[in-house]
Nucleic acid binder design. Sequence first.
RNA 1: GACCCCUUCGUCUAGUGGCCUAGGACUCCAGGUUUUCAUCCUGGCAACACGGGUUCGAGUCCCGUAGGGGUCGCCA
Length: 436
Amino acid sequence: MKVRTRFAPSPTGHVHIGNMRVAIYNWLFARNQGGSFLLRVEDTDRERSTPEAIETLLNAMEWLGLDVDEEPLYQSHRMDLHLAEADALIERGLAYRAEKGGPGSGECILFRMPNHAISFQDLIKGRPTKAAENMEDFVIVRSNGTPVFHLANVLDDIEQGITHVIRGDDHIENTYRHIALYEALGAPVPTFAHLPMIVNAQGKPYSKRDGDAFVGDFQANGFLGDALFNYLALLGWSPGDDREIMTRAEMVEAFELERCQSSAAQVDLKKLIWMNYEYIMRVSELDFRAASEAALKQADIIFSQSQLDAVLPLIRERVKTYSEIAPLSRFLFVDDYEYDEKALKKKLIKEGVPETLAMLRQLLLEIDPFEAAPLECLLHDYVEQSGKGFGEVMPPLRVCISGEQGGPDLCLVLEVLGRKEVIRRLDRAVAKFFRN
RNA sequence: GACCCCUUCGUCUAGUGGCCUAGGACUCCAGGUUUUCAUCCUGGCAACACGGGUUCGAGUCCCGUAGGGGUCGCCA
């Protein structure tokens, strides 16, 4: 039988990385098996399920490259069918009406749990088992006449022909109930795989207040969808060898639910950043350029295409996330940069620096052409003749023209800025910090 | 409290009874290359939660204990 998996989120406007990881595993499994990956929008909570929330969800999936094989099913459209099935269960004596004191004034419908233990083979957890005396009848239709999650979820999984239910292990308790429902409905019980949850840097479960755990935030902070996908895929799963940076095709090929960890995994932002860097290094020049243009525009930095041509090579291998592009290169486009306090203290305001800068100024005026290679020779010669170290010469100059003690290769920076601009910035800094 | 799930370096993991003096990756630290900045290279720190079994032999199997998490809504 052809494998069919689904991602069944309830759209709330914020798509959490924990949920997305579940979606990724569903996608990976379906692709590995040559099956179908479906989307079902569980939008019965009408307050939260706005069109914008659904849009956010779809965007996040597209960004991560989670393509679906069929039109999404909207749970809210199926309410009448869910209710009809509940009535049918009553007629067969498998459910009953009761007064339990909930919303509305009418009676709710309860599903009658069987009086035998329920256990199932889980692809990740082994064989969870629950004794009959530990299970109670549960509500499937509220007294206000609306179907409850358990009923709708199972009925929709049957409708969509889901063969493998891959979800968080917070659903294990629900699964016992769901299996009873499948049996009552006369439907084949799908295979289950319960993934462990992921926890934040403090080792606690992600709560709705964990601001940086939403997929949109990672996108906004300059992460690549492919990098986040790779990171999340390996958070709780491994191919069994030492591979970490993997293409989608490699992950699809290697994916096995049986190789998933059964315990919770902690998100490590440092490792994600490292992985993102690895991905940025593999991005095409064209894509990197597009990302840079977007980042610079967003930072309100005015630039010309020729400036961009000159600057991109300097920062190409230095950014770990796209959000570093603007801060790292800003001084190359505009001259209103701040002088970093630490840089000033450690590199500029020091004995002998004004004299060094005066000498450099003269040499920089004379050198021709004003390009990286000759500039490097110039600095090299100066260092040799003056008996100073590179550490006494280059950092002060760098602070003057960039405000920072770190940054791209100094000679390349000088070339990109050009003689006129370098001298101007040099004079400005000297006037500002060595007035007398 | 009841029920269910989980437990290898700080973190992600490899490990399915001998190949484990427990391997890799991230982080961190120390050297080296580049006499700027970064990259890069080499090395180092660092773990089988604890206690009992089973076995010639246990990180690997079993049972306890402790700790963590989940569920116990007419939320999904």
